[in-house]
Computed example of a mutant assay.
Amino acid sequence: MRVGEQSTDPIDQILGEVPVPASLTPEDVRLAVRAVVVHAAEEWPSGPLCRNDGATFPCRLHRWGRRVLLAHGLNERQLDALIRHGNPFVRVPFPFLVNGPRVAATGARPGVRPVAAGRPAAPPSVAPRWPRAS
């Protein structure tokens, strides 16, 4: 079964799809990342099954997570890279911007003080990394 197809699983037919929230919060995005990674496909002789609950892939939570992350601005390649990465705790920036975080118009980063002469500069804070679609 492909991601966009209707499921034939009886549970899916009774419960229907998990609704995507009207306005996404960082918590929704965090849970969606966990859903797509934990409920990834696992190959079996009968076909791909959900690694977590053994339902026909994609299960309800995987489909919900994909819809949330697509609504958040990720594309299919980025989603696939996120799933291949395999870490359910990867932090996706909120709000997600395709070209990276916004930079102040002056070029200075907000909250960074200029370094006085003779003082060593503090190491720059490292932003959390998440997988790139390559």
Rank of each mutant, 00 (worst) to 15 (best):
L70D: 02
T56W: 05
H62V: 08
G65H: 03
E43H: 06
R119C: 13
A127S: 08
V33E: 09
P120Q: 11
R113S: 14
L49R: 11
L74R: 03
L79E: 07
G100E: 00
R66T: 14
V29Q: 07
T8C: 02
V38E: 13
R84S: 11
P95V: 02
L31M: 12
S23N: 05
L31D: 15
W64E: 01
R34W: 09
S7V: 05
N99W: 09
L69M: 04
W64F: 02
V3W: 05
V29D: 06
A41S: 11
H85S: 13
F89D: 14
A41N: 04
D80F: 01
E5K: 09
P88Q: 07
R51C: 02
V115E: 08
L74N: 04
A105W: 03
G86C: 11
C50Y: 07
R77M: 11
A117G: 01
N52M: 13
A32W: 00
G16C: 06
A55G: 04
G100S: 00
I11M: 08
V29W: 07
E27L: 12
R67E: 14
I83Q: 02
A71W: 04
L97I: 02
L74W: 08
P128W: 10
V90R: 08
A117K: 10
E5A: 13
V98A: 11
R63A: 13
L49P: 01
G73W: 06
A105T: 03
L70P: 04
P123Q: 08
C59I: 06
P88M: 12
W44E: 15
C59S: 14
V18S: 00
A55F: 12
A81E: 07
A121C: 05
A105N: 00
G54K: 05
H85C: 11
V115S: 03
L82S: 03
D53W: 06
A121N: 00
A127C: 02
C59M: 06
M1C: 09
E42M: 09
L79H: 06
V38F: 02
A127Q: 01
R77E: 15
F89G: 05
L69R: 04
P48I: 01
H85D: 15
R63H: 08
L82Y: 05
D9N: 14
W64H: 11
V112G: 00
R30W: 02
N87S: 09
V115C: 11
H39Y: 01
P26A: 01
R102K: 12
P114T: 12
P88R: 03
E76V: 13
L49Y: 12
E5G: 08
L82Q: 06
R113P: 02
